[in-house]
Simulated scan of single mutants.
Amino acid sequence: MAASVSLFASPHSWIESDAVAQCHQVAALDGMEHVAGMPDLHPGKGAPIGAAMLSSVLYPLLVGSDIGCGIAVFPIALKKPVPEKLAARFPDLDVPVAPEPGEDIPAGYTDGLGTVGRGNHFVELARVQTAFAERAGLRERDLVLIVHSGSRGLGERILREHTEVHGAGPAADPETYLKAHDEAVRWGSLNRRLLAERVALALGAEPAEPIVDQCHNLVEVVDGSKYLHRKGAAPGDGKDVLIAGTRGTPSYVVATHAGREAGWSVAHGAGRKMSRADALKRGKAKHTVEELRRTPVGSYVVCGDRQLLFEEAPTAYKRIEQVIADLVTHGLATPVAVTVPVVTYKTAEPKRRR
């Protein structure tokens, strides 16, 4: 008998039938007990993105390769910030950094350390436009660095080692997988801190500790023996999380209060509305590269990869306002602050590479 499936989205939300079908496919797996789809739900490779999946069996494929991917928020103090000038000062975050002597690097993995990665990963300087309450140290007009990145090649290696032997099947030795998984989660958190530190120093600011740092690709042990897989779903059990919009729309810090039916989870972002191929095709028909380097909110986009500019255009994503409204309607989260992009970094410009 298939597990139950709950979808936390309104009829006004853009949810592809393929994504819902993937939820039901996952629900049919051995040991699966419940699948919760968030309002940013969209199809993924082998499993839906924007879902929390509770099972008595651990399935590494449901977490995916970017174990430990998450979003952290760091306060940053800058005098008279001028967006165009700040955009030119961002460092090349595709160039790895060398670890400090004696630094504790999870799994001893140093490849790609301090790099942001491709796809939907980013580092963004943003301004707090609205703070509904002074929470997590956020006040209106404060500046923050938002870092979205994961475990880079480490997570890929862990999943590959599993799939080469077991394919899409369950972990033969959950404890061994979880040990490697936990190292990747720690690596992702460290990497977000290094990225924020690199950008803060390049912009002339002092690095700061994160006020939010939550992972949305991981598996947790709950109820003593159950496995809660999150794929593009942030923890929703009382922690504050940032739910990312796009480089041309706001993001939201929310207080979370999701229960068991929602997999103790909330959305992690706006969620894709178009495939990368569709976004590239439609974007080239509607926009020029220069148009995409400036956004409707007046922010700057640093991206030396023209294809990525189109693939990650704001129009390729769902409306973040609708995602947040769905979370509020279903009682999963309450907004506490809104941030608006000032500079969003994707990849360095070729002319600035060293």
Rank of each mutant, 00 (worst) to 15 (best):
L242K: 01
I243F: 07
I243R: 02
I243V: 14
I243N: 10
A244P: 10
R247M: 04
G248E: 05
T249N: 12
T249G: 11
T249Q: 12
P250A: 10
P250D: 12
S251H: 06
Y252R: 06
Y252S: 11
Y252I: 11
V253E: 02
V254A: 08
V254S: 11
V254F: 00
A255T: 14
A255V: 05
T256Y: 11
H257S: 12
H257Y: 09
A258R: 04
G259I: 08
R260F: 08
R260V: 08
E261D: 14
A262M: 08
A262W: 10
W264H: 11
W264N: 00
W264A: 00
S265K: 09
V266Q: 03
V266N: 02
V266R: 03
V266I: 14
A267H: 01
H268E: 01
H268V: 04
A270E: 09
A270H: 00
A270T: 06
G271Q: 02
G271T: 00
R272G: 03
M274T: 02
M274W: 12
R276A: 04
R276G: 06
A277Y: 04
A277K: 14
D278T: 13
D278C: 06
D278G: 09
D278M: 13
A279W: 02
L280P: 06
K281V: 12
K281L: 08
R282T: 13
R282L: 14
G283P: 14
G283W: 01
A285K: 13
K286L: 15
H287P: 13
H287Y: 15
H287T: 11
H287N: 13
T288W: 04
T288G: 12
V289P: 14
V289R: 11
E290W: 00
E291Y: 02
L292T: 02
L292Y: 06
R294G: 02
T295Y: 06
T295K: 00
P296S: 11
P296K: 07
V297F: 12
G298T: 00
S299I: 05
V301Y: 08
V302L: 01
G304V: 01
D305N: 12
R306S: 09
Q307M: 07
L308N: 09
L308D: 12
L309P: 00
F310G: 03
E311W: 03
E312R: 00
A313C: 09
P314I: 10
T315S: 15
T315A: 15
T315Y: 15
A316D: 03
A316E: 05
Y317L: 10
Y317D: 14
K318S: 03
K318T: 11
K318N: 14
R319H: 12
I320E: 05
E321D: 15
Q322R: 14
V323N: 10
I324H: 11
A325Y: 05
L327Y: 04
